[in-house]
Design a protein around this nucleic acid. Structure first.
Lengths: 151, 151
DNA sequence: GATTTCGCGATCAAATCGGTCAGCAGAATC
DNA sequence: GATTCTGCTGACCGATTTGATCGCGAAATC
């Protein structure tokens, strides 16, 4: 249940792209501005490219840019591009697992977990992220004081 | 963002305990009924014991039982006992991370992610799980047809 | 054709994951 | 009090994942 460095980096790089007016942005600039190891970032950007979130051109004047408008790319899209499915249990999707005995209802819980993650990550676009205009449901969750307490 | 085998096992074993009328349940029976490797399960049960969720007695007539009523133990408690904090980003709690530039709002998103996970896992008790009587918010999420679709 | 920048596979050290082994420590039974 | 049962615990293990780095090829620009 943790967010990997890779996913975190990916979202930050994508945000940086979303905030840059069109035209290619060099990998190095992304790495600098978000303090991400350049060579690692390049692999991440490659993943993003493979899943159609980003485009790239080489050579001088080359760089990366978003393949779609920033309001059509969700944070979930970005995470999936680098990490695969968002909420797997034992490496299998929750809808494919069945439990026996007293744990029978557990599948519903994992489904609910995935749904609640999606509610946040799917509804927040890169544009929401860079403008600070988070969707109401997300803002509500983040504004709850208890949400900031560790456990 | 995945649920480990350990966490899955832990919840299932705890559910089995919650469903068993008091009196110690042997590790072997838990392992059998939930199809978990016994020796691995014993480590898990030890974690649960160390965090005060379970008690145990050795020897003949020994076994494990819940230290508290099943409606006072949440699934979140169980997961935390074996996996540590529920939603860390790069191994750090989201409230301790600060982002710069275009990613400044990202912290709020991670906080919201954690909050939404808590909404599900904290509100569901072992009793809810074994009776199938899931909290309304959880049931609502699980009943959504879209929640069952892979992505 | 020189330079710049991405593309991508190979490699790597360290950590994590899922699990087994073996031996010790209490509790019950005889 | 000896035996048996069952949990307690640390050591260990192979495989995978994580978080990178290196090196070289391929495109684009000048």
């Amino acid at each position: 249940m943790r967010v990997s460095a890779k996913a975190d980096y990916a979202v930050r790089a994508a945000a940086e792209l979303a905030a840059s007016p069109d035209g290619p942005v060099k990998g190095e600039r992304l790495a600098d501005s978000q303090d991400i190891p350049l060579q690692f970032l390049e692999h991440i950007l490659l993943d993003l490219k493979h899943s159609g979130i980003v485009r790239a051109r080489r050579g001088a004047k080359g760089g990366y840019w978003l393949a779609k408008p920033a309001d059509e790319v969700s944070i979930a899209d970005v995470i999936r591009a680098v990490e695969g499915p968002i909420a797997h249990v034992q490496s299998a999707p929750p809808e494919s697992i069945t439990y026996t005995g007293s744990a029978q209802e557990l599948q519903n819980v994992w489904i609910a977990v995935r749904a609640s993650l999606r509610d946040v990550l799917e509804s927040t676009s890169l544009e929401d992220l860079v403008t600070g205009n988070l969707p109401d449901n997300v803002r509500e969750l983040a504004d709850d004081k208890d949400a900031w307490l560790p456990r």
